[in-house]
Computed example of a mutant assay.
Amino acid sequence: MSLVEVWFGIVERQAIRGGVCKSAKDLNAKIRAFIDGWNDPSHPFVWTETADPILAKASRPTMSSPRH
């Protein structure tokens, strides 16, 4: 699953699902409002870990074999 798919999944769950969109313009407004809230500068993204553990996890060998 790509990062884009994950992000659109979040948008769907938090901004669209359960709501009623009467038009494409209405859907666009709901998505735009979600993005504006997501990008609110008063709530910046904060890293909770240093880079070293993240990079270690990203560079560790995979457990599965590419030959299935």
Rank of each mutant, 00 (worst) to 15 (best):
S65F: 13
M1Q: 07
I16N: 00
M63I: 05
H68M: 10
K30H: 07
S2N: 14
N28V: 01
L3W: 12
S65I: 05
T62I: 06
K30Q: 12
S65H: 13
T50N: 08
G9L: 07
W7G: 12
F34Q: 01
T48N: 11
R67M: 14
F45W: 04
E49R: 10
K25W: 06
R17W: 07
R60T: 05
K25D: 15
E49Q: 12
N28H: 13
F45A: 03
I35L: 15
K25R: 13
G37F: 04
W38E: 07
K25P: 00
W7M: 15
L27K: 06
A15E: 01
P53N: 04
F45Y: 11
I54A: 10
M63E: 13
R60C: 11
P41K: 00
K30L: 08
G37I: 01
N39H: 05
A15H: 01
K30V: 01
V6E: 14
I31P: 02
P61D: 15
V6S: 12
F45C: 00
S42A: 15
L27G: 01
S59E: 09
P66E: 08
H43E: 10
V46M: 06
P61K: 13
V6H: 14
S65K: 12
D26T: 03
P53W: 05
I35W: 07
M1I: 09
L3E: 12
I31W: 03
F8P: 00
R60D: 08
D36H: 06
S42N: 10
A24N: 08
I10D: 06
V4L: 14
K57R: 15
W47L: 11
M63N: 11
R17C: 05
H68W: 12
K22P: 00
S2K: 06
P41H: 02
K57T: 04
G37M: 02
T62L: 14
R17K: 14
P66I: 06
L55W: 13
L27P: 01
F45G: 00
E12M: 02
K57S: 10
M63T: 11
G19T: 06
N39Y: 02
W7P: 00
C21S: 15
I54V: 15
E5Q: 13
H68D: 14
V6Y: 14
K22N: 12
W38T: 02
R60M: 13
D26W: 03
C21P: 00
P44D: 02
F45M: 02
P61G: 09
D52R: 06
E5H: 15
M63G: 11
V11Y: 04
N39K: 08
L55N: 07
A24T: 05
D36C: 05
I31T: 02
A51F: 11
K25V: 10
S23Y: 03
M1Y: 09
L55A: 08
A33N: 09
D36P: 00
N39A: 13
F34D: 03
P41Q: 01
M1K: 06
V11L: 08
E5M: 06
R13Y: 06
I10R: 09
L55Q: 11
F34T: 00
